[in-house]
Design a protein around this nucleic acid. Structure first.
Lengths: 180, 180
DNA sequence: CATACATATAGCCGCCCGATATAAGGATGG
DNA sequence: CCATCCTTATATCGGGCGGCTATATGTATG
């Protein structure tokens, strides 16, 4: 999915500004689903407006800078539906955390412990916020993905908690053997 | 992690060619951990060799094109260790599948069913291959990440199987209400 | 025998990301 | 009370990357 399609998708949930679209991908309902940066969002919105797939209107605000709010047009909704019918690209994961863990025997055990504990805390925090969300009145797709996220993050958190000590012991042992 | 660090990490497991490094990220032990393309790998290896972090040697092959095999130098190992100590960037996920599911009420139920069934089959296949791998003799980090992957993919597969019918029914119902 | 895939390397171009820039307002600490 | 940092808001730029094309040899398939 390119940045324009991601913006169309975000706008299909309701009118939003570039800043709000970024927030949706960064910490909102679309986080952990796809990525969209300011460097991609603003040019995409400009191009979508030029193509007539969205319309933008200036909105004055008090105590905050004015913002430009975008809305999907009929053409934009059609373009989104077409994009959703295209075969999805395979998922792509870029995890420095997993990469470091994978090479964990090259990292001091205390540092590994710190990373794992940080990740456990991050999962706890995510899960708390997700469990605090009531999506029962939302569209079924959003509810489904929310539940899937809960299941996956719970499994990951539980695995880290259950195997944390084993990994640290194994890394310490591995270091000991290598030192011999 | 940039492409050079990813290559250093891959080479820390053993000497390899650019093609083999790509394979490690595409379908090998590093798949689902990070991404590395040919467009990034070959320039990275060239630069790493120029910086003295790796050395490359031509290797003739029978019935196959000759290949260039790279090996880490001492400097390269040091550079890798430094990179592993840097704070990891946050994980990034780009999933067209989740994006389409999230907007699932905009997709025909039969198409959604097809996508979910395809994803269930994909998880089954991944899990079978992962369960067939015996990593007990491998470095502890690799074993840990392998176990984490198993746990996460099992949870995801189980959730899709358990909630598949509910989602399709909810989407059909959502379509019915929208049509009224 | 033509086509497709695997193995192998390389380069190119467009897209994207992270950073910087600008600006107004609130929060925090000295 | 002021400096600094954060939030909100938009925009742009340069470097890195990905996907594609290119070339080449060998095997597999229809």
């Amino acid at each position: 999915m390119d940045a324009k399609t991601l913006c169309l998708g975000a706008l299909s949930r309701g009118d939003a500004s570039g800043y709000e679209i970024k927030k949706a991908f960064e910490e909102g309902p679309l986080s952990h689903i796809h990525e969209a940066s300011f460097g991609a969002i603003y040019p995409a919105l400009t191009e979508l407006e030029r193509q007539g797939l969205v319309t933008g209107r200036e909105m004055a605000q008090e105590k905050r800078p004015d913002k430009k709010v975008y809305a999907l047009t009929e053409d934009g909704l059609r373009a989104l539906h077409l994009a959703l019918l295209a075969p999805p690209a395979r998922d792509k994961t870029r995890s420095d955390f997993l990469f470091i863990l994978f090479l964990g025997h090259r990292v001091a055990a205390p540092r590994l412990a710190e990373l794992i504990d940080g990740r456990i805390a991050w999962y706890q925090d995510c899960l708390s916020r997700m469990e605090a969300c009531d999506l029962s009145a939302g569209p079924p797709g959003e509810t489904f993905v929310h539940g899937l996220g809960l299941a996956v993050y719970t499994a990951a958190r539980d695995y880290l908690v259950a195997h944390r000590a084993d990994l640290l012991a194994a890394v310490a042992e591995h270091d000991r053997l290598v030192a011999e």
